[in-house]
Design a protein around this nucleic acid. Sequence first.
DNA 1: TCGGGCATCAACCGAAGGGTTGATGCCGGG
DNA 2: CCCGGCATCAACCCTTCGGTTGATGCCCGA
Lengths: 213, 213
Amino acid sequence: MTSPAPPIRLLLADDHPVVRAGLRAVLETEPGFEVVADVPTAEEAVELAGRCAVDVVLMDLQFGGRMLGSQATAAITARAGAPRVLVLTTYDTDADILAAIEAGATGYLLKDAPPEELAAAVRTAAAGKSALAPTIALRLMDRMRAPATALSRRETEVLQLVADGLSNAAISKRLFLSQATVKSHLVHIYSKLGVDSRTSAVAAATAKGLIRR
Amino acid sequence: MTSPAPPIRLLLADDHPVVRAGLRAVLETEPGFEVVADVPTAEEAVELAGRCAVDVVLMDLQFGGRMLGSQATAAITARAGAPRVLVLTTYDTDADILAAIEAGATGYLLKDAPPEELAAAVRTAAAGKSALAPTIALRLMDRMRAPATALSRRETEVLQLVADGLSNAAISKRLFLSQATVKSHLVHIYSKLGVDSRTSAVAAATAKGLIRR
DNA sequence: TCGGGCATCAACCGAAGGGTTGATGCCGGG
DNA sequence: CCCGGCATCAACCCTTCGGTTGATGCCCGA
């Protein structure tokens, strides 16, 4: 017999009280887990992750306004000896996923995950290995397999402004570009998405999760 | 002393295991509540609401695909002696709210509601009174106060197709209209929303929750 | 009954957006 | 080292969209 393994210490960050209660209920019944605290804001998550000894932070991406989950993730993982961050969100847009991964998240789960999958992901993350939900992994694979669909950083930026309802002239001013450049980006976007107008580009990109809203 | 009041019998319907667990945890600690069952699909909610003696159904609006929460709500409230349905969702688009109310929902709550508000709403619903989250009530008030912002049925239909990326020509064919009529609707939509282009109309309407996606 | 909102359509015009060609500079990988 | 992708811009043409005016019919409520 080995000595009993120390429990995995967890911090829950989500602005929905019901979700926090649910995660607590699901994870505390699981053996080997200890929920140290749950907080309703990204700021408190950063704060507590620094002060308490925590192994894994379960982090929502969308908090009501202010700091984003991805920013909090970056702030937490930047420190030495930082806990692992497991992003847990409702949405699965490319932008969110990439932002979380770039911010140093160890894993990415969707909130509709069954309890077993959730527990398994936490253990995987605690061990320092990356834990991606099947849906997410699939999306990343798609992105690799079909690079034609992947918009460049600048293209995404332009398309997001289009989705916000800006005209080419407004976009060019906002990004300090000529209208010609904006149009050039749009033409590339159209061909990558297989569409032929700004509105259908927005529709297609929204459907694929390339942009937000 | 009166005899002890019978507990309010609840049925939870949500496709997220974590949310079901959270609602259970929050409501079972509250005195006077009894969670009869929780189900992951709208179909099972309709089924169980008919078979068990339930006072209030907590119903999500978005289930992974298939039957919508609003349809399930309509199916449940259609029967005689039906339980009250309290809609509990993440989103607050006008379309969703109106669909739920038309389907016979007794109340409409957002998932970020604090536990006390949730419990209070359940009691209110059990008593047969309508329970609207402050945000929702505000939105309905706005809708009443500024009828200029409320798009007509036909206008919403046209704008939804615009949001789907269709051109005026495509919309006119889809709806068996002339392009002139489509343009006419769009002009009215623009003035109601205070915008001046199709893309900004889509952005504004999405922000206001007038259309879906 | 009469006005007003809704829905429908026509004709017209100017402007914005869409499509092409062509060109430059930068950077990173084979 | 050179090719290719990315980002930038210009000039051009044509289509679609945006905006106006004006008109018809319907239905509802004052």
